[in-house]
Amino acid sequence: MRNLALSLLLAVTPATLLAADTPTAEAILDRYVEVTGGKAAYEGLKTEMTTGIMEMKAQGIKGKMSGFRNAQNFSYNVVEIDGVGKIEEGFHEGIAWEKSAMGGPRVKTGEEKAFYMREAILARDARWRDVYSKAELSGDETIDGVVCFKLVLTPKEGTRTETQYFEKATGFRKRISMVMSTQMGDLPVESTLGEYKDFGGFKAPSKVSTKMAGQELSVTISTMEFNKEIPASRFVPPADVKAIAAKLKAAPAK
């Protein structure tokens, strides 16, 4: 009987304490939506345009970046780097693609495609229930002196989980870490977000510092504009990407 009581205590105590001290994962994600703009504002989104500067300071590499999303969940991102040229990527009508002067055009598949589909979703933070099948609170972690909730999110499309950290005090997202599936292989990626600013009624991080395969990349967001008209043609992949997509579709499955 005593063993049973102890077992019961051990089984119940952590959950009870957790419930008393911390919100649920769902509540943390919903709070993020509220502190960054509110559900109603997110629901009113039709388009999103972002501009910024991408930099790898250690290597002296710098470029301008722009991103576009619309209500159809199409996306187009482009970075123009001195000495490298243009690197474009997008998602449009089921095609996740990339094109650069270095590697040429290509169509993404599998886990990589699933990731870009998720990234293309407009207001995905407010629609997290459509994006993730599971959200679990996995404890606390202190990042740069800031105590954060640690959440593990399982996407509906794809199998890779994402770990996201939200500041206890403010509700802002502090860090995202995941193993990203890329054409070159699986890469652990860690992005730390900071300096939240108001962009047209939404609060968003203006600085993003990413560590990936031993490289450090920083992004400074200059502008974010919402509900400005974006021509549909902006999201249409280049002709060579479409030709490759058609070729892949026509090829017999291996």
């Binding site: 590697g103 040429g104 055009p105 290509r106 054409q183 070159m184 292989g185 699986d186 890469l187 652990p188 395969a213 031993g214 060579d240 030709a243 490759i244 070729k247």
Partner: peptide, 15 residues
């Protein structure tokens, strides 16, 4: 082969 990751130099066939 890097210390943390392994990267493939994948060829993207042109059209």
């Amino acid at each position: 082969y890097q210390r943390e990751v392994t990267l493939k130099l994948v060829v993207n066939p042109r059209v």
